[in-house]
Design a protein around this nucleic acid. Structure first.
Length: 551
RNA sequence: GCGGGCGUAGUUCAAUGGUAGAACGGCAGCCUUCCAAGCUGCACACGAGGGUUCGAUUCCCUUCGCCCGCUCCA
């Protein structure tokens, strides 16, 4: 279970998932729809378990995170503020000769030209634009390529009524930041967590459910004080260990410590779901890759069989989660676009500031000013207006006000499910005495995520006493555990069925349960999925034992 | 969106210009004292649409879907 699935073909997983009811193609009876997938009975349980574990770890187990469940369709202005309306609609074109596809704006730039946009919103190439691949001038018209799903709110289908299905859950958190802050009795640093569907009209959905057009995210926006505020209050920002978990959160943590903290917290979460470190890898985004507002982004990758390989031939992995340090960009954008203040008042800062030596005050003021000014001018605010606003912001800081910065651990649920399925999949070829061989499939899920926790089986079906006792045991367990009763076929076949479903424990009611051997009266066989090991447990302690082992 | 390959029971495969077989799986019954035993029976498929043809699952076209490569992935 711990090893990396190097040479596993995805088709095998796809076929098992279909066969056992983990994942089906959406709308299959109508021929399917590209990029959309349904979870069958086992998949639905698996996914529920994963979301439940995330929610528990991120909110209930912590005092500093509050939950949120926002709508999928929101005011379109949110997507203007976030930048999605602009960046999600890159104009694309194809070369008619060599069939190469380009981003029209980049193609022009590469040749020192500029794409033009008419009043009607239509893009056009300047004369002489060539394909950078083959040199042909036969290019298709630049077409906007919007990755957001569009719909209309209300009965009138006009541009005035356009709305989008959210392409990420994060923006809803930013938009409700003030409401949550005021109602949750939290103060900075604290986070808002949300699980929910998001939609992206991907150009090419690929790799089974990995890149779907409808998918689910588990996102935390964790709001922290700007480093300038930390320095004012605590004298300096805590230094971060070179690697590893920085330990329990401290008041003097700056964004780097918080970023590292969340990376490590998230890795621990994945390990707790059964994804060993060896199956994970990291990608620290380089300066070139980083979005302009991001200070750092660390991706946690899982080594899927379809992942690309590095120079050494090792699987590089595909992204499960990105942990981004997004500065105060998002809230600043919403403040500018909505006109509503997104700043918070920090009493500690207000009290600390006047006690700082003047030189220190000036230095922090200057740094904060520079940061704000850089942001504003990058966003196209005119130089003098930006200077004025940045001055205001820096003056506000001195009075204890700032826009919080954000650390964002953002995970894809469906990708994680696919990782868990891949990770759990094992096959072994078994040859019997007659030389016949068959392949046995075992889904070795961590008991925590397993869709069915325990199967209850009477050893034989045609002995009413066994069946009755088995039904009673099933009844005893089913209210607290995802439980499955099966009496069809032979006991071996039933074990094998549960192995494919990934059920970690099977409980068998046999003649000893009934008292054939008095010492074993009221005990059952407990059979382990991964090694077939068996032991006997008292029925009286069974429920408790199982609850402890699936936690 | 481009290029290539592919679509036959739930799964894995077979055959065929005269409407399809198997294995495993599923369901029911019998049997079975711990790892896919056996016996009997049952159900289930040519992705969709159009064309050619007396007749199409088979040939052609379109479409949808899947896989690979390109492109895209803020």
């Amino acid at each position: 279970m711990a090893e990396v699935k190097e040479n596993l073909h995805m088709e095998k997983i796809v076929s098992l998932c279909k066969r056992r009811g983990f994942i089906f193609q959406s709308s299959e009876i109508y021929g399917g729809i590209n990029g959309f997938w349904d979870y069958g009975p086992l998949g639905a349980e698996l996914k529920r378990n994963v979301k439940e574990l995330w929610w528990r770890a991120m909110t209930r187990a912590r005092e500093d995170v509050a939950g949120l469940e926002a709508t999928i369709i929101m005011a379109p202005a949110i997507w203007k503020a976030s930048g999605h309306v602009d960046t999600f609609s890159d104009p694309m074109c194809d070369c008619k000769k060599c069939k190469k596809r380009h981003r029209a704006d980049q193609l022009c730039e590469d040749q020192g030209l500029a794409l033009t946009k008419g009043d009607n919103g239509q893009f056009a190439f300047p004369a002489g634009t060539k394909c950078t691949h083959c040199g042909s001038t036969e290019l298709t018209e630049p077409r906007p390529f919007n990755l957001m799903f569009k719909t209309y709110v209300g009965p009138i289908e006009s541009e005035d009524h356009v709305a989008y299905l959210r392409p990420e859950t994060a923006q809803a958190i930013f938009a409700q930041f003030k409401n949550v802050l005021e109602t949750s009795r939290q103060k900075i640093p604290f986070g808002i967590a949300q699980i929910g569907k998001a939609f992206r009209n991907e150009v090419t959905p690929r790799n089974y459910t990995f890149r779907s057009r409808e998918f689910e995210q588990m996102e935390l926006e964790f709001f922290i004080k700007p480093d300038e505020a930390i320095e004012a209050i605590h004298g300096s920002v805590a230094t971060v260990p070179v690697s590893g978990h920085p330990g329990e959160p401290q008041p003097n943590w700056g964004w780097q410590a918080w970023h590292q903290y969340w990376v490590e917290e998230r890795v621990r979460f994945y390990e707790g779901l059964g994804l060993a470190r060896a199956t994970l890898s990291f990608h620290v985004q380089t300066a070139d890759e980083l979005a302009h507002y991001a200070r750092a982004t660390t991706d946690i990758l899982f080594k899927f069989p379809f992942s690309k390989r590095d120079e050494k031939g090792e699987l590089k992995g595909e992204e499960l989660e990105g942990i981004a340090a997004r500065s105060d960009f998002d809230l600043s954008q919403h403040q500018r676009f909505s006109g509503k203040p997104m700043s918070v008042f920090d009493e500690e800062l207000r009290n600390a500031w006047p006690r700082l030596p003047q030189a220190r005050q000036d230095a922090l003021w200057q740094r904060y000013y520079a940061h704000r000014q850089r942001y504003l001018t990058r966003m196209g605010v005119a130089e003098d207006a930006a200077a004025r606003q940045a001055t205001e912001d820096a003056n506000a800081l001195a009075k204890g006000n700032y826009i919080p910065h954000v650390i964002e651990p953002s995970a894809g649920v469906d990708r994680l499910i696919l990782a868990l399925l891949t990770n759990a999949y094992t096959e072994t070829v078994k040859t019997d005495d007659k030389g016949r061989s068959e392949t046995l499939y075992v889904m070795q899920f961590h008991p925590r995520v397993a869709p069915i926790k325990v199967a209850v089986l009477p050893l034989l079906k045609n002995k009413p006493e066994l069946v009755a006792r088995a039904r009673a045991v099933f009844e005893l367990l089913r209210h607290d555990l995802a439980c499955f009763y099966d009496e069809g076929g032979s006991i071996g076949k039933r074990y094998a069925r549960q192995d494919e479903a990934g059920t970690p424990y099977c409980v068998t009611i046999d003649f000893d349960t009934l008292g054939e051997n008095p010492e074993l009266h009221d005990t059952v066989t407990l059979r382990y999925r991964d090694d077939g090991r068996q032991e006997r447990l008292k029925i009286s302690g069974l429920r408790q034992w199982l609850l402890e082992h699936v936690r």
